[in-house]
Amino acid sequence: MNTIAGTWLLRMKTPVGTIEAEYRFEDEGGVIRASASGGGETTALTDIAAEDSPDGQHVAWRQSITRPLRLDLEFDVTVDGDALAGESRAGRLPRTRVTGERITA
């Protein structure tokens, strides 16, 4: 079972302020499927990879958004219980700190 499974509230600290979005991760027979909702749009996550590490479960994914800007994002986080932390990156832009908390299992 993937520890990322569930619904999460993620916060991304960007130069224009903190952005919040809801992420839903589902474990379907060992395959993770997920989507994100925020800013008036819902997008599917792609290239989701999860592996166990000494610090928790390491999870990475890609996501394309159109609001507030059209961006291709890459996330890299570590899940520890009902919390996660890591970073996202949009192309050549600086890395953005990401934190999150599970709101439902």
Rank of each mutant, 00 (worst) to 15 (best):
L69P: 01
I4M: 06
A49K: 13
F25N: 05
E22V: 07
P54W: 02
T7M: 04
A21F: 05
T42W: 06
R33C: 12
S64L: 11
T78S: 00
P68I: 13
T99S: 07
R102S: 06
R89Y: 05
R92N: 15
Q63G: 09
G40A: 06
R62M: 08
G86Q: 02
A50C: 12
W61H: 07
P15R: 08
A50F: 03
L84K: 11
A60T: 10
S64A: 15
R70L: 03
E41F: 12
F25L: 01
L9Q: 15
T18E: 13
T46K: 11
A49S: 14
L10A: 15
I19Y: 02
I32L: 04
I4W: 01
A50L: 01
D76N: 12
F25C: 01
L93C: 01
L84V: 11
G17Y: 04
V98P: 06
A90T: 06
V59H: 05
A60I: 08
G91S: 10
V98R: 00
G17S: 00
P94I: 11
I103K: 13
M1Y: 12
Q57V: 07
G100A: 12
G38R: 06
H58M: 14
R62I: 03
A83E: 15
R62S: 15
D76I: 00
T104M: 07
R67Y: 08
T7Q: 07
